[in-house]
Design a protein around this nucleic acid. Structure first.
Lengths: 249, 249
DNA sequence: CGGCCACTTGAAGAGCGTCAACAAAAGTGG
DNA sequence: CCACTTTTGTTGACGCTCTTCAAGTGGCCG
């Protein structure tokens, strides 16, 4: 892990701007936050389950997953994180990490000391609420994952995840015409969906065979968005996409 | 739904005291909150998915579930709520409810107008953080449900839920010697666990047959807590039961 | 007593997991 | 640049967990 000091929380500000409108004071406070940037290679753990971190991380570039290990050695990915996400905001209030964060690609991460984040919250109630809202939306996504894994068959489940991913990436400008980078192996997709790698593979063949998606070398594309949404039983409401969100058609 | 006006947020204060240390000013502010109490019968919906409520609810007595409907008509329960919970705090920040709240038993509910909750947050940053922490723990529980449903077989899954339920009820003094009220039908348990009623029934027989639990007329008892924990692959860490009193100034 | 709801049981089969082998791609070192 | 290794993707066969359907039992309340 290589870190360097930087000033100016550009991407963080853009993220918050999607949650609330910032005034000049708030923007200045954010801009003066002492920040560090760290770079992680694919497969590296950014934070480990059980850690008691003294800082929060925000994803600047790259993709990560949050996962938990179960007794028999299995692993469940409970969320994917994309640029703009602050995956462990919870560590501000819950001492011990309940998940491990792992880089899926080369990833640039912003580190914010808890101390600084708390000072920022004390300075601006609105920023506090913006952070809180961020964690609430993460919770809404987790609930939808419970629904997805609990109720939907493999085909619907995977289609739903693809819709969710494209919709979230679109908001941060990382999906173009239902096409985005989704650098996940079939094994990891299985760990996220509660399915075996073999069954993921067959499910993907079905989705491809129906002409709904292509997914090669980490690039995912939905060919018929409406149909994919329908197959995936996907309604983006739970994502609470920012007010300037343009509804995908 | 019958409502009446009350003053004094006793149970709410007790709940917050578990999240954060309150000072006298804060206790006074809470005590002066204008509150209403509503009573719901079993099966009644308290808030409906898609609603845009102007108030939050806190459970005083009784049990509720939060559930989402999927396209094919199925239902997934994403959480159970017990006295002391504030199941829809999210509505303070996310306009539209992503779940329906349903009373499982006769339930007494405290209603807090958003307006009042917001004023309270503005008065005390520490109360804001306490509410935020409450939602973070709810998120941690949702993540564990993803793990439970995604990775564990029926027996482990149900055992895990029983452990979680007993552990949570114990904190609010509603479990005595691993014995508690758990007024849920097998059908609803199936909706929570992503399993059919038939398979829930057989799983319960297995748990009973192993002498791990009894569950009759809504009263759940763990006979060998340690063994049940082991069968359920249960580690209570994610519940953040021990208040680690994150220092907020 | 009758009706309803929750629980129970059996039988058959679907969906998905596991195992094992192989193919293709991507990384690695000379 | 090529040979090697490792990782990721693909396929077939088989079997287990869980679902579905259908029938039946037991308790509770009007």
């Amino acid at each position: 892990m290589v870190t360097s000091f930087v000033h100016g929380a550009g991407p963080l500000i853009r993220k918050l701007e999607r949650l609330i409108r910032l005034d000049d004071d708030e923007r200045r406070a954010l801009d003066q936050l002492p920040l560090r940037v760290a770079t992680f290679d694919p497969g590296q753990e950014i934070v480990r389950q059980g850690d008691k971190p003294q800082q929060c991380v925000a994803v600047l570039e790259g993709f990560c997953s949050a996962s938990k290990i179960v007794g028999d050695g299995g692993r469940q990915i409970v969320s994917f994180h994309i640029p703009g996400d602050i995956p462990d905001l919870q560590s501000l209030h819950v001492a011990e990490m309940d998940v491990s964060l792992t880089a899926l690609t080369q990833t640039r991460i912003l580190l914010i000391q808890h101390e600084d984040a708390r000072r920022l919250c004390a300075q601006s109630l609105r920023i506090t609420h913006a952070f809180w809202r961020e964690t609430l939306i993460a919770g809404a996504i987790a609930k939808e994952w419970v629904v997805n894994i609990g109720q939907r068959d493999a085909l619907t489940r995977v289609a739903h995840l693809f819709c969710e991913t494209i919709a979230r990436l679109d908001v941060v400008g990382l999906a173009d015409d239902y096409r985005c980078h989704f650098p996940v192996t079939q094994e990891k997709l299985g760990e996220a969906m509660g399915l075996s790698t073999v069954h993921i593979n067959r499910t993907l063949q079905e989705l491809r065979g129906r002409g709904l998606i292509s997914w090669e070398r980490g690039v995912l594309e939905a060919h018929r968005w409406e149909d994919l949404q329908q197959v995936g039983d996907f309604d983006p409401g739970y994502l609470s996409l920012a007010p300037d969100w343009v509804v995908l058609r």
